[in-house]
Amino acid sequence: MVKQGVVPDELTKPFWDAANQGRLEMQNCSACNRLQNPPLPACSQCKSGEHLEWKEMSGRGKIYNYGVVYDCPVKLLQQEQPFNLVVITLDDDPGIQMYSHLPGTPVDEVPVGAAVQVIFEDTANGQKVPEWRVVA
């Protein structure tokens, strides 16, 4: 599934640059030793932006939950309906979630709790985006 193109902005550029290099990075507050996603200008715990850094993740996770999208607001994805839309939690910190279309898994046959591994896919403008596949 080709997603809309992404134009990295100041806040998220490190995330997208890492994706282009095949790495999954998350924002981390070094003062709180706490990851956060989505990226924010400040740590959601200490409210300071001074100690925010980008930290490489293992790229391993679990399927936490999922739905099946039949009526998508995004025009580019409508031709792919219905499709899985899954929430992944990272093994590095199960409190951190990411979305996935879970390529390779049939619609509505999502194994909740299964292990997944990050991959990187091209979006419509060539920017890479993290995606996830079920680990066999």
Partner: peptide, 15 residues
């Protein structure tokens, strides 16, 4: 195309 922050936001996203 969408801005990078929007793409990762909790509500309407790239997905």
């Amino acid at each position: 195309t969408v801005p990078g922050t929007f793409a990762l936001s909790p509500g309407r996203t790239l997905w």
